[in-house]
Design a protein around this nucleic acid. Sequence first.
DNA 1: TGAGAGTTTCCTGCTT
DNA 2: GAAGCAGGAAACTCTC
Length: 379
Amino acid sequence: MASSELSLILNNANANLYPSEPQPNLLSMTAPMGRLSEMTFSSNNNSTMGPWDLMNPQMWTRQNVLEWIGFHVENSRFDASLLNMNYCDMDGITLCTMSKETLISMFGSMLGEQLHHSLETLKARYATDLSETCLSESELDLLDNILQNSFSYMHAPSLGPLLETVVVQPSIPSDISENSFCYFDEYTNQLTPESDHGYDSLTESFQSSHTGSFLNPSSLESNSSDSDPEYSEMPYSTSTKNFVKQESVETKKRGRGRPPKPRDSEGYEHFIQPKKSKHAPRGTHLWEFIRDILIHPEKNQGLMKWEDRRDGVFKFLKSEAVAQLWGQKKKNSSMTYEKLSRAMRYYYKREILERVDGRRLVYKFGKNSTGWRMEETGY
DNA sequence: TGAGAGTTTCCTGCTT
DNA sequence: GAAGCAGGAAACTCTC
């Protein structure tokens, strides 16, 4: 698919979506680029899905992928000027091999995450098909070649091999029972407008929680030096990481404490801002979220593990991934392990958690925590 | 509408 | 030197 074709689709979408309504936030931003920057996509909840919605993503043609991206560009008010058209030129199989990090590095945190969620949802929907098409090692090599060829421009010295960023899920759960716990399921549930459990729709979730800047840590894995070797993963660098570095330099000195959130548009913040409709219900606290990950290891593999189930001692294996998951649950794309761990430390006082001295990424449930003991869970 | 709980964000200093 | 931990301080969101 030529990039001009995508431009055409996006232009058409834009034309359909933009009557004459001005967007205050958008108008106030400083447009960095030419024409495309002037055609930021507004949300259109009525926009219809394409044929891609009825197909296993693995079967998508380049056209389907393009339409799928276009759909999310529309719905997320993504500024099309920020899109690298070359990134949109791929078929479904190639797309399905891409991890969240890869998508984020290609499309930015907001659109990348939305695409990732959508893709995972669609993959789950066609889980049976997907499980039948698990990739062999040789296929992975082949894909790596495809990726290398397709995205050769990403192979700057600072960028690692592409396939290192690709997470091939060992299996997609096909038995999505109502009672089973899986945060992935929970997020996919948010996609259906009917299943309004008090959470905002995913689209709104992204619009409200993503500040629009590409601040997400590019790696979801904990790079802790104390991590179990078996779970250690190759660190990789992406442009998003560089962005984080840049940003941190810019915001270096500031007053103590949490500054008020900017109300007006700043930088990339123009992507967003429909007012949060209704707050999310409290429901799950952080420690419950952590507990639920631990007691359902089959559906949240590799994120955390029990060190001593009897004593309630557990360890973060992928601290940043857990933090990101928590951030998604709280609609906060800038969640990090550092922040999460601060919240964890507040639990010491309330004896929901106990300190485990001298061990990194290791915590222990305290006497005021419930629901994790074998007697309580039954397994 | 205000208080309080539960984070979230940022920071400094310390330890590994 | 980097990453993680500890905890103070203040801001923020949400519930009651």
